[in-house]
Design a protein around this nucleic acid. Structure first.
Lengths: 338, 338
DNA sequence: AGGTTTGTTGCATACGTTTTCAATTACGCT
DNA sequence: AGCGTAATTGAAAACGTATGCAACAAACCT
């Protein structure tokens, strides 16, 4: 029934009221019972829905959030996106999705693109932002929240798990398990998350008097992580435990140890990951890992972003969310460990 | 430097030209060398970028594509989204992402939401559309392309792999491998892809004189598939080969057989999947599977959608893309098979 | 009853752009 | 020089909505 384009004016004519009346009904402003009824009836009959772009022009609020994400091969991100999208939809916002490689100039151009859509805010998922860009966003008055990545210099808000503390927990667990030669395939050291986890891990080892772990940067990449695992095992005294900077790389390490080198996990080597993506619970890996609480991180991200949108004068926030160590079968479990 | 909102009028004033001139420079219409230079200079200095929403209002083209997707836990979809987003970005379009559970009324409201953003087109990834909704989209003159799902009744365009043919190939491969008791954990029979694969598979078996396979619907769900595997193996004459309707479920089946029932793959049971997601190549699974060529499917999707956008009178298209069987180690390989 | 508050309504304007149209300028040619 | 054609330009209208303002009606109070 409904023809191509039906505007508020069409509805107004059919309902016998002014265009403003129609607008008021749909924007929740006050109107009398009778007009509301007339407008609603006409609108239903014509299949009218307000044009959000036109609305955005007037109000200056597009109710669009730009989501910038680097890659989707790490299962953690699809999951986060799914939750983010749902949480934002419930609040009346929608996501404009942008894929950006991790090159700085790529990010740059992509963010500029986003601005032209007049997004109300931006969420970056594991993307590093230059301080130049940071400033430009601030100048444009457009809130940015970094999900699962911090940026030391910038004044931007960020939501992460408690990575330093997480690294410590893993170290304590491995030490309690009686491991003597502990190694580390690190998360990308160019990222705050990677650095923090490594730092907490090494600090706890040092405090316990353990030797510093043999460490290789796995770059959050499967192949790099697999190569790192090979290299570690070629040593004259190979490790009996490896902390891997995220689950995605941990799977690669486990595959390499088991099917390429022929080792048993955890009998020969204990493996601990970070994230607790769904796959970590699959029987094939059964990975002991430090959980990043996606749901709470998403909630915090949405809350922070919308708060900054509604009150631009609001300061930036830096939220860290603590997660538990999920104990499964990929690492030797210390006596009497809960 | 750039202040909050800089419009074409600001640029015009600084460049000493009319606002129309600025518009012409940025919309690629003709202008003299000198004006172009003046405008460019002023725009750069002010950090001006045209407001795409305002542009969309008058042109009627938002350059936004709505992407509706049900779930993201099957790795096939993140991958497809990544590619889709990139392909569309290259063509000047961007993606408005919507998560929709698979409930019909959810889809309904979500699509209506999309319309209010004046999207130029919609891609649905593995979502079923009611014929009512189909009609409304057609009435609105808004092109829809279904990715990895067909809809028999509707006149909408769809891009799928050659599912019937794919099912046949798997059957032929398993028969050639000398398997006598072939079972099937089917893709969701409420979806065209699931039905087609099953149909091709069963048809080929029947033509070869093999008994019809024991079949259970796995609903594209891990838990359901795992339960199906258990049930199949409890039979007095358990299967020596299982064709699973997609890789995502195949992983669950393999986990169950190996770690719960203690069977070896492929020595005790051969497993074949469908999709060839990246994980299928991982050593832990090393899954023989029928590849869905994501890249070509994405290309076809984008081409079809943009073609329909540019020429609304264009008819709908139903593209099927053939994929090869990727032979790995999860199924017995017939003698001399390439 | 009269004055005051409260609520409802329509008119007109604004948002930032593209695009038509007419006017002006530049240019080629005899 | 002069004329015709092409290229360039600015003014103004449009896109679909929200909203300030003034007008008006209704209700309330003393």
């Amino acid at each position: 029934m409904s023809d191509a384009k039906v505007t508020s004016l069409d509805v107004a004519r059919m309902a016998g009221v002014s265009q403003s009346a129609v607008s008021r009904v749909f924007s929740g402003a006050s109107a009398s019972k009778t007009t509301i009824a007339k407008v609603r009836a006409a609108a239903d009959r014509l299949g009218y829905r307000p044009n959000r772009l036109a609305r955005a022009m007037i109000t200056g609020k597009s109710r669009i959030i730009g989501l910038v994400v680097a890659y989707l091969d790490n299962q953690f991100y699809p999951l986060a996106i799914e939750r983010l999208s749902q949480a934002l939809q419930e609040r009346g916002y929608h996501i404009l999705l942008i894929m950006a490689g991790n090159s700085p100039e790529g990010i740059e151009s992509v963010m500029a693109d986003l601005m032209t859509y007049q997004v109300d805010g931006i969420i970056t998922a594991s993307v590093a932002m230059s301080s130049d860009l940071t400033e430009r966003c601030a100048a444009m008055g457009i809130p940015v929240v970094m999900f699962n990545r911090g940026q030391d210099g910038s004044g931007l808000s960020s939501i992460t798990s408690a990575n330093v503390e997480g690294g410590r927990k893993v170290a304590e667990f491995l030490l309690a398990g009686g491991h003597g030669r502990i190694a580390h395939v690190a998360g990308w050291q160019g990222s705050s998350t990677g650095r923090d986890r490594t730092q907490g891990f090494c600090a706890a080892l040092a405090e316990a008097g353990a030797p510093p772990p043999e460490t290789i940067d796995g770059m959050y990449d499967r192949d790099t992580a697999a190569a790192a695992a090979r290299k570690l095992m070629e040593r004259p005294e190979p490790p009996d435990a490896i902390f891997v900077g995220n689950d995605h790389m941990a799977f690669a390490v486990m595959d390499t140890l088991r099917h390429e080198i022929g080792l048993r996990i955890p009998a020969d080597v204990s493996i601990v990951g970070y994230d607790d993506v769904p796959m970590a619970a699959w029987a094939a890996y059964d990975l002991t890992t430090l959980r990043q609480p996606v749901n709470r991180m998403v909630e915090a991200t949405v809350d922070t972003l919308l708060a900054e949108i509604e009150d631009p004068a609001r300061g930036h926030e830096r939220v860290e969310i603590t997660g538990p160590l999920i104990i499964r079968g990929s690492a030797r479990v210390p006596e009497g460990w809960t």
